[in-house]
Amino acid sequence: MKKENLIALGLTEELVSEVMDIYKKDLKGYIPKKRFDEVNDSRKDLEKQIEDKNEQLISFEEKIKSCEEAEKIIKKLQQDNESAKKFYAAKIKDMTITSAIQSKLMNVKYSDLLVDKFDKSILVVNEDGTVSGIDEQLTILKKQYKDLFIIDTKDEELNCQKKSSEGVKNPWSMEHFNLAVKLQV
């Protein structure tokens, strides 16, 4: 959706701005299709490799059952298969966590700098594929690296309201409005 397309449909600038704000809010938290496809293709590739190892193991078991050397080969293949399963499961977990972290850092300047600041050993991948513990670490990072986070204009308005309630005058609020200034203009 582009601003020019909405204007061409006959919407006013105000309506276009409101529609674009709603559109941006709706897209917040979505993982980009390119990243989703990368993770999904990698996962399929890893599952295919595990499946190939299992088929290899089964074919060896069927071909060589009687010989002692064959039993050694089978045991070695089973150990290799188990270690490959653990390796690929860890790799899938890491990709899931990294993808979840990147989705949380969509509105951040230089997100690559912050990805490494997360302690992945604390994060837990749930059965439904969600990752627990990211929000807590993100809150800490927002405090430590304020300058890297893009401040939402609504957050700025809330900060102005907080400051004005603490005693700092807000010249644009109704209670501090100066009529003399308006008459001079």
Rank of each mutant, 00 (worst) to 15 (best):
K3M: 05
A8R: 13
A8D: 11
I22R: 14
K24W: 06
K24G: 04
L27M: 14
P32D: 15
P32S: 15
K33G: 05
K34P: 00
V39C: 02
L46Y: 14
E51I: 06
E51L: 13
N54C: 04
Q56Y: 12
L57R: 03
F60I: 04
F60W: 08
F60R: 03
I64K: 08
K65M: 10
E68R: 12
E69N: 14
E71K: 15
K72M: 08
I74W: 11
K76L: 13
S83Y: 06
A84W: 01
K85G: 01
K85V: 07
F87H: 13
F87R: 12
A90Q: 13
A90S: 15
I92A: 01
K93S: 07
M95W: 05
M95Y: 09
T96K: 11
A100M: 07
I101F: 04
M106K: 15
M106W: 09
V108I: 09
K109W: 01
Y110L: 07
Y110M: 08
L113E: 14
L114M: 08
K117V: 05
K117A: 10
S121R: 12
S121L: 03
S121A: 10
I122N: 13
L123V: 04
L123K: 06
N126H: 07
N126D: 08
D128C: 05
T130F: 04
V131H: 01
S132G: 01
T139N: 14
T139H: 02
L141Q: 01
L141H: 01
K142H: 02
Y145L: 01
K146T: 03
D147F: 04
F149D: 02
D152P: 00
T153V: 08
D155G: 05
E156Y: 11
L158G: 02
L158N: 11
K162C: 05
V168D: 10
K169Q: 06
N170P: 02
W172N: 09
F177P: 00
F177T: 01
N178H: 10
L179D: 08
K182D: 01
L183T: 00
L183Q: 06
V185L: 09
